[in-house]
Design a protein around this nucleic acid. Sequence first.
DNA 1: TGTTGTTGCGCAAGCGTTTGCGTTCATATT
DNA 2: AATATGAACGCAAACGCTTGCGCAACAACA
Lengths: 339, 339
Amino acid sequence: MTARITDVARAAGVSASTVSRALRGRPGVSDEVRDQIAAVAARLGYTASRSASSLASGRTFTIGVIAPYIGRWFFGTVLDAAEQVFSAAGYDVLLYNLGSPETRKRFFTKLPVRKRVDAVLSLLIPDEEEAAALRSLGVPLASTVGGAREGFTVVGIDDRVGAESAVRHLVNLGHRRIGMVSGASEPLHWTTPVDRRRAYLDVLADAGIAHDPALEADGDYTVEGGERAMTELLVVSRPPTAVFAQSDEMAMGALRALRRHRLKVPDDVSIVGFDDHELSDVIGLTTVAQPVAGQGAEAARLLLQQLDEPEAGTPGHVQMPIRFVLRDTTAPPAPRGPQ
Amino acid sequence: MTARITDVARAAGVSASTVSRALRGRPGVSDEVRDQIAAVAARLGYTASRSASSLASGRTFTIGVIAPYIGRWFFGTVLDAAEQVFSAAGYDVLLYNLGSPETRKRFFTKLPVRKRVDAVLSLLIPDEEEAAALRSLGVPLASTVGGAREGFTVVGIDDRVGAESAVRHLVNLGHRRIGMVSGASEPLHWTTPVDRRRAYLDVLADAGIAHDPALEADGDYTVEGGERAMTELLVVSRPPTAVFAQSDEMAMGALRALRRHRLKVPDDVSIVGFDDHELSDVIGLTTVAQPVAGQGAEAARLLLQQLDEPEAGTPGHVQMPIRFVLRDTTAPPAPRGPQ
DNA sequence: TGTTGTTGCGCAAGCGTTTGCGTTCATATT
DNA sequence: AATATGAACGCAAACGCTTGCGCAACAACA
């Protein structure tokens, strides 16, 4: 059907080995012969069969990428950036969308990437057992998103510092009743919610503000969850005058809840998010920006580097810069309110 | 290193062929032996090498998915849904992100999926040459997003009908100066912008409204582009009282431009979008909803179906339902304005 | 002229499966 | 009792490439 290496060899009057070496830039072929083989290969439309060459060489030139919810902006953007780096380097990307617990479990038990990839990039935090399964693949591993595991190169941000700047901004504006919309850590094993909450508590304590558990609500890191959480915060006896949402999407949900309650932002309530979602600029949301695409690209680069220099030492931990972005959803508390 | 089929065979006291047949559910193995082999394989943690089995069988159990801008909500959502269908059926997904012209060209000239995938799902419209390249792979092909090619199963929506309902809504509200924010068809070869513009022109003509070219602006299907386009529309001698944006993201950009110009929506200007972006609900954007995830899932299913029954006839063309969604960005024109 | 190196290439043995065909053995058929 | 039938399994040949090794041929050196 399609041309095989022996067809090219015959047409060029050389052996298959020479064709193989010539096409992959290996030494042991004269320039003259190499050029001629390239010409013949092009004429026949020859491309080496990946299955055959990876079977023979043990290399697959494929990277496995595992991610939850690739439809969400954050993961989609990270994936986009990583894919570009990989494909520019000649690697293909095998994508595994591990949103639900079932798909996740299936992936880690069957481990379909075994012997199929040269490296794995994880956009989720594996638990210890899952991490062990990945390590058993014997390939370089990297992950983005907070929460390191042994054997993984990880690139992320300092969630503590980022969240601190967000909450401190609210404190500096004069807010004393500051709520938080957060998300659970458990199912995903990531440290992000924990770190951001820690920062929230620290800043409050630092400002001499007593922590009120009634001002925390779970928003599940989704828009709808954020809306629910904000609604909960509005029905406590003394509602917050400002809210730190642990993600921009939850902040957007919070904004929606406020609109439904006919509350003005930032006049009645201030909102600050986290991530700098592509639409936060459109909405005018004050937030903490992190380089989302940048993290994907950097993680991909580090992985390729490990592939190039296998013995270049242990994997590292890269912190990407963050930046507070002041927009239109934060202001000093209304003077009429108590305190 | 990891167990091979011969290891399992030896441990189970049978031949490699029997192991192969047993594990893949092929006939010719007694239930007793099959169970025992399964147990041994599980104990050894054996998984067949994909390279070897696809080399031997010619099947790869992999689907190639090509898409532009996977970081964007639309494509990310389609991809997410398609991946779930594929992986549930035991197929892996090879992802190619063809955003830029260079990556796109590289993909179609090198055609890295040759002999690597059992089918291809395209989230972009190939031009005739690219379509021919894909057909040369000799595998089932499908595409989402408007614009069919010979040999492709396509699932999409009726862009004409959808855009008509959006523009007609504005006409029904009493608007006479109706602008449009559109996008170019050319680089992507898709018919969507063309169809939606056609509908815009038809509805205007139908309502006896003269078409004013000054009320059309290019928004490039991005938020920023939408903002630019809206700004352009605001500086013409008689600006529109309502605008149809060909996508929600452009509509969001338009909203932002209006906010910057201190214009109220919908009091001063009405905006209607297209797509029903996940955040449109949050923003309150009136729009035309299309089943985005649904299209990805459906296209994936049709592709799997073609793989199951190779000779089941020629590929089809599926139209998914659309729905007009009235929210808060449209209202009758302000009475004070001219006409 | 003989030795040593170097370069360019072919041979053949894998890589780990799948699968057509042949063999064995128990059961059904006459 | 002899033969046909089929199920269960093993043998060995692919699948298309990579790569260690060997062998010419030729250049460079003494």
